[in-house]
């Protein structure tokens, strides 16, 4: 599918690579995002304010007092038609998750029943999934993480919960996510991580970034509590989360 440039008023335009969720399309989005960021930091592309990647498109935001669309789009087209394969090397992160507390995993039994598996098999399938962060959005730090074992694919809950606790680990469709805040939510809750996906006390308040590779690591309640205490105190060594590539 060829790239489409879509009008989003006079402060942005959308570079649309496709209209489906697919790894190759998302990779091109992220590569253009990185390319524009690099140009911007080098002082080129004046007027570009920021870019917003999504699964399949990149929103290029600009300041109409500095740049005009007719001048800016050809520069972006040149970048988009170049070699977009050389994206940033992905990080690999292991996220500790406790599946063993019924408060943490209220939907485990129902997911097991609906997918024809035992709860233990559901946990194994989640642990066995090789995930990748496609995009962040909806609320600060909320990551849409695709790559769920197809055996666990279910639509969202027909009736969303009014209250999902912070750091709940959930699945829906072909994705998993982790709620950065106490919030409403319609995904199936399988467990909870002691990590905080958004913590304004950190220099980097948002834990996950688009392109990150993600696996889950099972922890018992004792280890969950220990890590949670470190997170609360701000003493967790984040390097312990990174996996060798």
């Amino acid at each position: 599918m060829s790239i489409r440039y879509l009008d989003c008023g006079d402060t942005a335009f959308s570079v649309e690579f496709g209209n489906v969720i697919a790894p190759d399309i998302n990779a091109r989005v992220m590569a253009l995002h990185a390319a524009i960021l690099a140009e911007h930091e080098a002082g080129r592309l004046p007027g570009v304010v920021e870019t917003v990647p999504s699964m399949r498109a990149l929103l290029v935001c600009y300041d109409p007092a500095i740049a005009r669309r007719a001048d800016l789009q050809p520069l972006v087209e040149a970048l988009a038609s170049g070699d977009l394969a050389a994206a940033v090397p992905p990080r690999a992160i292991a996220i500790p998750c406790c599946y063993d507390d019924s408060d943490f995993a209220p939907d485990l039994a129902e997911v097991a029943q609906r997918t024809g598996r035992t709860p233990e098999q559901v946990i194994e399938a989640h642990l066995g999934s090789h995930f990748r962060v496609y995009v962040l959005g909806f609320m600060p730090g909320l990551a849409y993480i695709a790559g769920l074992d197809p055996a666990l694919e279910l639509p969202r809950r027909s009736s969303p919960r009014v209250h999902v606790p912070r750091s709940s680990v959930a699945i829906a469709m072909n994705m998993t996510t982790i709620y950065p805040f106490d919030s409403p939510g319609g995904w199936h809750l399988l467990g909870r991580t002691p990590l905080r996906l958004f913590d304004q006390r950190r220099d980097q308040p948002v834990l996950l970034a688009p392109g990150d590779r993600v696996r889950f690591r099972r922890v018992a309640r004792v280890e969950f509590d220990a890590i949670a205490a470190d997170v609360e105190a701000g003493t967790l060594d984040w390097k312990t989360l990174e996996l060798a590539p």
């Binding site: 008023g9 402060t11 942005a12 959308s14 917003v52 990647p53 999504s54 929103l59 959005g137």
Partner: peptide
């Protein structure tokens, strides 16, 4: 499929 939202969308 979700995409970015410009100011005033």
């Amino acid at each position: 499929v979700s995409d970015g939202i410009a100011a005033g969308s």
